[in-house]
C-alpha cells in the first residue's frame, strides 16, 4: 500500500498570522533493528528519512528523520503566512520514492 499523506492546513489566514500544520503519513518505519522471527535475520531498514515543507518555493520547515520515529510518522509545526500561496510537502523514502502533496492557503 503506497504511503498516503494526511495534512491539516487552515484554508485561510490573516497576513502575519502563524498557523499550525499537522502531517501524518502511512509508513511502517522499519527500523533496521528488528529480526525476522523465523530466520533470525535482521530486517533491512526502510523508513521515511526526510520531510520538508516549502511555501511558494521558499523553505519553511524540514526534518531529517531517524529510525526512532514511530510508524506512521506524525509531524506538527508552524508557518508564518505573509501572502496567499501554496504549501508543498515532500516525504523521502529510503528506497528513493518521493511522495509529494500540496495545499493552498488564502489571505483572510
Amino acid at each position: 500500500m503506497a504511503a498516503k499523506p494526511r495534512l491539516k492546513v487552515p484554508k485561510s489566514a490573516a497576513a502575519g498570522e502563524v498557523i499550525t500544520i499537522k502531517s501524518l503519513i502511512s509508513h511502517k518505519m522499519e527500523s533496521g533493528q528488528r529480526k525476522d522471527k523465523k530466520t533470525g535475520d535482521l530486517i533491512p531498514r526502510k523508513i521515511i528519512n526526510k520531510f520538508s515543507c516549502e511555501f511558494n518555493g521558499k523553505p519553511v520547515f524540514s526534518c531529517d528523520i531517524d529510525p526512532a520515529i514511530s510508524a506512521n510518522p506524525y509531524l506538527e509545526f508552524t508557518a508564518r503566512i505573509d501572502e496567499a500561496g501554496t504549501f508543498k510537502f515532500t516525504w523521502v523514502d529510503d528506497d528513493g520514492t518521493v511522495i509529494e502533496a500540496e495545499k493552498d492557503i488564502a489571505l483572510s
Binding site: 511555501f55 521558499k58 523553505p59 520547515f61 524540514s62 520515529i69 509531524l75 508552524t78 508564518r80
Partner: peptide, 20 residues
C-alpha cells in the same frame, strides 16, 4: 531521533512528533 530545521518563515520554533 530527528533533526528539525527552521527558518524565519516558520513563525515560531515549535514542533511535535511521536518517537520510539
Amino acid at each position: 531521533v530527528a533533526t528539525f530545521h527552521f527558518s524565519s518563515a516558520s513563525g515560531t520554533c515549535r514542533a511535535s512528533t511521536r518517537m520510539r
